[in-house]
Design a protein around this nucleic acid. Structure first.
Lengths: 215, 215
DNA sequence: TAGTGTGAATGGATTCACAGCC
DNA sequence: GGCTGTGAATCCATTCACACTA
């Protein structure tokens, strides 16, 4: 308590997720302890970077030893808020939405898909397979379900031209964070937004390969 | 020619993609000209940021006027290398892979999916629907197809435990850039890598909502 | 010896502010 | 008046280097 929220650098938070992912792999490998150097190198960064990032949140290491893997995992989960499960909604049950619904990685990390919505009446009432089968519901049900399930996050997989309006509806239903897959900038109305735009990522690659110079 | 490759800041390149996306929307809105201020505000950044980013690549603006939308689009496409079409491969034809194959946004931006591969013999020979139907091919065909099609990019949607090995195969087949969807850090063997990890993005949201403080 | 935690120093990126142009 | 392009100034993030600890 108390000292938290002393504005943590955004890049440090992103790396925290990467550390956690790597630590899971290290733990699965039966390694009990890890140094900042080893953890950093496996992710292409320096040892100092790792230590500085963690230092924003407290002192988790053991001088001369390194970090106990299981302990650090628990600490980072707590920092990120994933030491507790999260109920999430899926909004948009098209191709991409259905693929996301059946993605097993979410549940593994404590993200539980509890409801699916779509505005298309032709899709509503269809059954979607996730970790448990779910029936697609109309948008009008969202606010009720959000309250009932205490869902604070939504994954939004809708066409670009509908995205801002749908995002506003999601926010109005009480959801606090949206993972957006539409290739458009969402205006966050007092809502946390994370966006994944596939073409943006592809363009980063084309720039590296062909951009800058015509090599 | 000549002055290029003067090490451009990575964040500037990422924003270039965002500018381009926004410019496409502005053009679709029949607006002929745009100021750095307007472009920046629509993306939550300052006008100076926009001008500085563009300045890395040349002088595209018209004082007193702003930027001609169509002209700036053409310039940025050229910088990113997307003024020409790119043939891409899909590797991994599971749930996510199939959803990606049917995603229309790729073709719109000049990324043409020309072949699909999977290591599972039960999936090979199945037909996948993209903009044009494609037959899933065995991994052994990859090098041949890469050459024949001049495919330089691959989208990799395979399980985490196979990802590094598959990435190495993709590289060996001659592909220069990989968009990775597996939740694992890929060691780039002289290959450009961009990664999308859905749980990492969700964790950024949980941190914003609940992290830092237990609010 | 091996390795953390952290002030100090460095290096980059963002913002400021203004000259110049339409 | 409006707007770009850009050096100067500021801010922030990364790296260095070392005191300290097991």
């Amino acid at each position: 308590m108390s000292k938290s929220q002393h504005n943590i650098p955004t890049p440090a938070v992103r790396r925290l997720s990467l550390y956690l992912r790597q630590l899971d792999a290290i733990l699965a490998n039966d390694q009990k302890t890890v140094s900042s150097r080893q953890l950093g190198e496996s992710l292409g960064m320096t040892d100092a970077q790792v230590r500085k990032d963690l230092a924003h949140f407290g002192q988790f290491g053991h001088p001369g030893i390194g970090y106990r893997v299981d302990e650090l995992i628990a600490r980072i989960r707590c920092i990120l808020g994933t030491d507790r499960p999260w109920n999430i909604l899926l909004v948009g049950a098209g191709n991409l939405g259905r693929a996301l619904a059946s993605y097993r990685g979410f549940a593994h990390k404590g993200f539980h898909l509890v409801a699916v919505f779509d505005s298309d009446p032709g899709i509503v009432a269809q059954t979607i397979r996730g970790d448990t089968p779910l029936v697609v519901q109309p948008m009008s049900e969202m606010a009720r379900i959000v309250k009932k399930m205490d869902a604070r996050l939504a994954v939004m997989a809708v066409p670009a031209d509908a995205a801002q309006e749908v995002a506003d509806q999601i926010r109005a239903a009480g959801v606090q964070g949206i993972l957006n897959f539409a290739p458009i900038a969402i205006q966050p109305n007092d809502c946390a937004i994370a966006s994944v735009d596939l073409t943006v990522h592809l363009e980063q690659l084309t720039f590296q390969i062909a951009g800058g110079d015509t090599a």
